[in-house]
Amino acid sequence: MQEKTDYGKAWQGGDKPYAASYGKLMMWFFLITDTLTFSAFLAAYGFSRFKYPDVWPVPEDVFTHFPFISGEHPLLFVALMTFILIMSSVTMVLAVNYGHKMQKNKVILWLSLTIVGGCIFLGSQAWEWGHFIHGDKGGIDTKTEFVVHIAEGEDLSSVYSLMDADKYDGTHHHFTVDQIIDNLIKKSEYNIRKADRQYLSNKESIEYLKKNGTQVLLGANLENNEYGHRLFADYFFFITGFHGFHVFSGVVILIIILINVIKGTYERRGHYEMIEKVGLYWHFVDLVWVFVFTFFYLV
C-alpha cells in the first residue's frame, strides 16, 4: 500500500529556480519595495495636482534657472541632471562588464567615474534646492490659501522689482502686504496674477490684496511657498529629497566597494558579483529619476 514518490533532489537543496544568487535576488526584492514607495509618492503628487488643476504651479515657471547663466531657461538644468545620471549609469554598466572579465584596473576606472557622476548630480541637486528655498519672484499669500504673483500687464514680474529691491544684495528681505499695496498704488503699471492665472487690473489688484492678502512669501519651506499651492513644495522636498538620499547612499556604497576593489577583495573571491548588485541599485536610482523628471518637471 505504500506509495513512494520520488522527489529526487528537491528536498536536499541545491536547486536554483531563479538561477540567481541570494544577494542578487534580495537586491531585486528590495528594489520592488522601493518601486512601490516611489510609485506611491508620485501617485500622491498626481492626485494633489488633479485636485487643484487651476492653481497648481507650472513646473516650467518654477525651475527656470541655470547656474552662471542669467535669464530664463526652463527645463535645461534638469535635462543636464538627467544626462549626468544616465551617463553615470553607463559608466556603471561598463564597470560591471569589466568585472565579468576580471579586469581590475578598468573596474576601478569606471567605478570612480560613476562616483564622480553621482557627486556631480548631488551637487546639482543641492544647487536646485538652494535656489528653490531662496525663491525666485516672490508671491503673496491670501485668505483663499492660494498664492498670487506680481505681474506687469500680462507678463509675470517679481516682488523684488515692484519693491525696487536687489534680490542678491545679501540682506534678508522682508516685505509686508501693506508695503506691496503702497507700491502698487505708486506704480500703476504693476498688477497681480491670481493663482488661476487670471490677470487683474492695477485697481482690482489693490482691492484684492486689501481684502485677501495675508503675508508676502519669499522662497519656500514646508509650511508655505511662493510658487503656489503649499503642497507643491512639500512634494518637491519629499520626492527629490528621497531620491537624492538614494543617490547619496548609492555614492557611499560605491565608495566602499571601490575601496574593496582596490584592496583586491573581489579578485580573491574569484568574482565581481558585488559590483553587479550595487549596479542594480545604481540603475534603479537612475530609473526613478527618469520618472521624477517626467512627472515633476515635464508634465
Partner: peptide, 14 residues
C-alpha cells in the same frame, strides 16, 4: 534601463 542596464532581459523567465 531595466532590460539592458539592469540585465533583467537576460534573466530566467521565472
Amino acid at each position: 534601463i531595466v532590460n539592458i542596464f539592469m540585465h533583467l532581459g537576460f534573466e530566467k523567465k521565472s
